[in-house]
Computed example of a mutant assay.
Amino acid sequence: DQSTQLKKQREEKLKLLYSIDEFKFFDILDESDEILRHGKELNYTLGSAKPLDGGSMRWEIPFLIFKFIFCDQKFREILKSSSQSDDCPVVFQENFRPVTGIGGGCPLVRFIKHEYFIKNIKRNLSREFSKILLERFREKETDIIDDNGEEYGSYEDFIKGESFFKENKIIELLKTKNQDMLNSFLLVKAWLSHELLYHVMSYRYRVEYGLSEKKGKEIAIPFRGKDLPSENSEFSHPDIMIGFTILSYLYRGLDLIQVKHGLMRLKSDRKQDKDSLLQKWVQENRNWINEQNQRENEEFPEWLTSFRTLDLENEDKIV
């Protein structure tokens, strides 16, 4: 029962507390929940950059979440409809145009009401990403069951944070199955249940975060006010930085150099079906390309259909 579980948890925490004596050094933090929580701050960094634990997956999972939010037509309609309600729990600005003039076409989305996020966004995304991850790792069971047949709830419940008393067992079980699968579910859980997503998408673009105006710095940084980047500052929480960076590029778009580098890397990648992926990118951005053509009074650039006709040395054929 619940009292037995609480007693067991207390014993585990006491065991961890007693293990402090085994460490040669340790730090004691007052108000650690406040100090270590993700938040907005001006954090002036020192030293050289180091790779993040988890590698590319730390970027891949939030990218998939944002892709679903911004590209799934049904989900976009839900956000758009909610933004037009009287209480306006979410801002949805369709075809947002950044002041830079680079991007365009991506809606600007900002969460206003936390209750709306919990009841609608978190619930829907937990369900969808449970399906996505199970399909990715070819897991047919939607419930978490060990070899002895004991059930620990569904993967969706785990993402929603509703398996609190069984989380340690679930983590150990998934670790034996597939470490990448465990890491993926933990990251989705962090973004949805620990509300990294709500935090990132409740902030104002180019007021509280945005891209640096200095060349060579390609991550999002804190802003001190409207169009006032704090150039020497960075976000201390890596996942928050990742979220703000992805959003910033969605809103602003890539510049010419970044597009060129991306195309060159794709061209040199032997594992990719280059032409197919290029055509997919063009199709996804066809409306924006057509707008640029109408502005310049030009026809659709047929050389965009294949790397055989795409001249990466000619910048007029990249813009």
Score class of each variant (00 low, 15 high):
Pro238Cys: 02
Pro238Asp: 03
Asp239Ser: 11
Asp239Cys: 12
Ile240Lys: 02
Met241Ile: 10
Gly243Met: 03
Phe244Thr: 01
Phe244Gly: 00
Phe244Ser: 03
Phe244Asp: 01
Thr245Lys: 00
Thr245Trp: 09
Ile246Asp: 02
Leu247Val: 06
Leu247Phe: 04
Tyr249Ile: 01
Leu250Ile: 04
Arg252Cys: 04
Leu254Tyr: 07
Asp255His: 02
Asp255Thr: 00
Leu256Met: 10
Gln258Ala: 12
Gln258Val: 08
Val259Gln: 05
Val259Tyr: 00
Lys260Asp: 13
His261Gln: 12
Gly262His: 02
Leu263Pro: 03
Leu263Lys: 01
Arg265Gly: 10
Arg265Ile: 10
Leu266Ala: 03
Ser268Glu: 15
Ser268Arg: 15
Asp273Gly: 08
Asp273His: 14
Lys274Thr: 07
Lys274Gly: 04
Leu278Cys: 05
Gln279Asp: 11
Gln279Trp: 01
Lys280Gly: 04
Trp281Ala: 13
Trp281Gly: 05
Val282Asn: 08
Val282Tyr: 05
Asn285Gln: 10
Arg286Met: 15
Asn287Pro: 09
Trp288Tyr: 15
Trp288Val: 15
Ile289Thr: 04
Ile289Trp: 00
Asn290Glu: 07
Gln292Ile: 10
Gln294Gly: 13
Gln294Arg: 07
Gln294Tyr: 09
Arg295Ile: 14
Glu296Ala: 12
Asn297Asp: 09
Glu299Gly: 11
Phe300Tyr: 05
Phe300Val: 01
Phe300Ile: 02
Phe300Cys: 01
Glu302Met: 11
Trp303Thr: 07
Trp303Phe: 13
Thr305Phe: 13
